[in-house]
């Protein structure tokens, strides 16, 4: 860790006043402090935003509003979230450990950095950490890496479980900066690595996530988040599926589906969604619908199993959801 200035402003305007490219906002600190210790992130200024009024978990006619500074554990425990958006609570509870969830914020969760071992090891080349230095994972140990949305510059997996559930549900993210506020869909908030993997989202320097809104829907209450990993807890996903279904009897009226552990960003699967629309909830339908889920995937030397695992994860999640009807 190197020397940096540290401030604890009480207001958003104050927090954003001098924020720039050398500024890091500190919320739960569960990613930032890690990366600072590893020398991966070396901000000149750290602004502790925990005193800002970016709080609240409320449900109204528009949907579920969550302030960026709400803790993962509090959101997971919220009655409305558990009843109307079960996959959000599940995605949160399958993340990290209880201790980390007690600290980590919702805004920070959405902005957490990849777990790619090369990104976190400053002795290795990494385009995301040091643009132009090369991608070690392309030829290195890449069992956990992405197969969708990758480029020759970067194959790092997006790590957030929550973001997968939120992308499936069409969540909006509210941003605030010195220039004002704006709202963008979370799906387009994240960008593909392309030739600029160090840019991961549309957030501008000195811009903060203020909160999110998950819209009301006919499917969010019938949803499941399934996470597949080697270890039963405290590990990032090899694959995950966020599946929400609007039922009409035993028939799927429409579905919302996103996958985690496979993409460089949370991976919405519109083709699978449309293949399920209007279909009965049978094993054959599920198998057929997911057959194209990994189309366009670029498996690497150690993660050739991921396309098949993704399809099976989706079928399993759909089966679980259908059986719980």
């Amino acid at each position: 860790m190197r020397a940096y200035t540290f401030t604890q402003p009480r207001g958003v305007r104050e927090a954003l006043a001098d924020a720039g490219t050398d500024t890091a906002f500190l919320a739960g600190g569960t990613t930032l402090v890690d990366l600072m210790k590893l020398d991966v992130v070396t901000p000149a200024r750290v602004v502790d935003i925990n005193r800002l009024p970016l709080r609240g978990i409320t449900l109204d006619r528009d949907g579920l509003h969550i302030g960026a500074l709400e803790r993962m554990s509090d959101v997971a425990a919220d009655r409305n979230v558990r009843r109307d958006y079960p996959m959000i609570a599940q995605a949160l509870e399958l993340s990290a450990s209880a201790q980390l969830r007690n600290m980590a914020s919702i805004g920070g969760n959405l902005l957490q950095r990849t777990r790619c071992g090369y990104f976190r090891d400053v002795t290795t080349p990494c385009n995301k950490r040091e643009p132009g230095s090369g991608c070690s994972a392309l030829t290195g140990i890449n069992r956990t890496h992405a197969i969708l949305g990758t480029s020759d510059a970067c194959v790092a997996t997006h790590p957030s479980d929550l973001a997968v559930a939120l992308v499936a549900l069409g969540t909006d993210v509210h941003l605030v900066s010195g220039q004002g506020t704006r709202t963008v869909p979370l799906d387009t908030f994240y960008t593909l690595p392309g030739s600029t993997p160090h840019l991961e989202n549309v957030l501008r320097p000195g811009e903060l996530i203020a909160g999110i809104t998950v819209p009301r829907s006919m499917w969010a209450a019938n949803s499941v988040y399934l996470k597949i990993r080697d270890r039963q807890s405290y590990e990032f996903a090899l694959t995950s599926a966020a599946v929400a279904v609007e039922w009409r009897g035993r028939t799927i009226r429409q579905a919302r589906i996103a996958a985690g552990g496979v993409g460089t960003k949370p991976w919405r699967l519109p083709a699978v969604e449309s293949a399920l629309a209007g279909q009965p909830a049978t094993a054959d339908v599920f198998e057929a619908a997911v057959s194209a889920a990994a189309d366009g995937a670029r498996p690497l030397s150690h993660n050739g199993f991921k396309p098949a695992l993704l399809r099976r994860t989706l079928v399993r999640a759909l089966t679980v959801l259908a059986e719980s009807r």
């Binding site: 777990r115 071992g117 976190r120 080697d230 270890r231 039963q232 807890s233 405290y234 590990e235």
Partner: peptide, 13 residues
């Protein structure tokens, strides 16, 4: 070479 990537069982396992 770290405890995030070197998997040892957790209680749940």
């Amino acid at each position: 070479g770290n405890m995030a990537d070197y998997m040892v069982p957790v209680n749940a396992d």
